[in-house]
């Protein structure tokens, strides 16, 4: 079977959806030459009316997409840098997200906001390294953070077909992941359905995005001593609460590894919901970025604020002691 990289999976999903539905179009900065590679080849296949290079006007082109969606289109906006979402937060959260309710259901806003390269790319410093998926989950905007190439394909496809705004975070640390896959088996992945990557009995590790791969590596390292279940929510909003509850019911212990800042991050919500719904035999532990982290430039400093395998290993050992 052929190899598929995460980045190529995004490219393939875009191409397949552009081919399938004439209402779909892509817009963003430098998308015609495909600076991020995610839109490579699309201009040649679909022409300039389906692949729009925009001026550096994030606020305007984000709401331009909303207007086009009101007119029946399905725009996909590529944001090269995760922090650009802060510039367009008003346009996504306060405009696109609210049109359905505020108009009493008269319209829909099927826009996809794609961030290929979210989180730290190491070396890009304070304003290019954030991972703000929890902000959109908090605001109620559908938000996905795929971990694998096949889920990147399936969730981006679903996001484009969904009638509501959806933010797709493609972590920089996952873009190079490759799998041996049958292209014909690639399929849409429903929102709000998690995936147990590795079954286990002693502890549930909820891992978000690229951290799924770290969690699997740690689970393998500890395999002789501890049976770790790795649960990937895939969609952080809506979250697969039933899937989480089922996993924790099997293990009774919970660790969450999440590239959000600690305060009000996804890990906080997972732990809170587990405390409300599940019968935990030990206090849960979060492995996250620090509160209010600004990613510093120097490599060692950048890595110091990212959740890592050593922290996850220690967290697993901690919950098992109780």
């Amino acid at each position: 079977m052929p190899w598929l990289s995460y980045q190529k999976a995004l490219n393939r999903a875009l191409g397949d959806e552009l081919a399938r539905d004439p209402a779909v179009f892509v817009l963003g900065e430098d998308v015609r030459v495909a600076v991020s590679n995610v839109t490579a080849g699309l201009l040649k296949r679909f022409g300039p009316d389906r692949v729009l290079d925009t001026p550096l006007s994030e606020q305007a082109f984000t709401s331009f997409a909303t207007g086009a969606a009101l007119g029946g289109r399905r725009p996909v906006i590529e944001f090269q840098i995760p922090a650009l979402l802060y510039l367009a937060f008003e346009q996504i959260v306060n405009q696109a997200h609210k049109f359905s309710l505020m108009t009493g259901g008269q319209t829909r806003v099927p826009v996809t906001y794609l961030v290929p390269g979210s989180g730290s790319k190491t070396g890009w410093a304070g304003q290019h390294s954030d991972h703000p998926y929890a902000l959109f989950a908090h605001a109620g905007v559908k938000t996905v953070v795929p971990a694998t190439p096949e889920d990147a394909y399936g969730l981006l496809t679903t996001a484009i077909r969904d009638d509501d705004p959806v933010v797709v975070f493609a972590p920089a640390a996952a873009l190079g992941v490759r799998v041996d896959v049958d292209f014909d088996a690639l399929a849409p992945v429903p929102l709000g359905v998690g995936r147990v990557h590795r079954a286990g009995e002693d502890v549930t590790v909820v891992a978000v995005g690229h951290l799924v791969h770290d969690a699997l590596a740690v689970a393998e390292e500890l395999a002789g001593d501890v049976s770790v279940e790795v649960f990937d929510p895939r969609t952080v909003y809506p979250f697969d609460w039933d899937g989480l509850a089922a996993s924790v019911a099997r293990t009774g212990r919970l660790v969450v590894v999440d590239d959000s800042n600690r305060m009000c991050g996804i890990a906080a919500e997972v732990v809170a919901t587990a405390a409300e719904r599940c019968d935990l035999t030990a206090p849960p532990v979060r492995v996250t970025r620090p509160d209010g982290a600004v990613v510093p430039f120097a490599l060692g400093l950048d890595l110091a604020v990212q959740p890592d395998r050593a922290q996850l290993t220690a967290a697993i050992q901690k919950v098992l002691k109780q």
């Binding site: 606020q59 909303t66 207007g67 086009a68 969606a69 009101l70 007119g71 008003e90 319209t107």
Partner: peptide
């Protein structure tokens, strides 16, 4: 009233221009 091409009044000053441009393009 979308049936009449009224794509909504907007409570954020200046926010509707870009929405209008997108609707016109579509």
């Amino acid at each position: 009233d979308f049936a009449l091409g009224i794509l909504g009044a907007n409570a954020i000053v200046g926010a509707n221009g870009a929405i209008t441009a997108g609707a016109a393009w579509a």
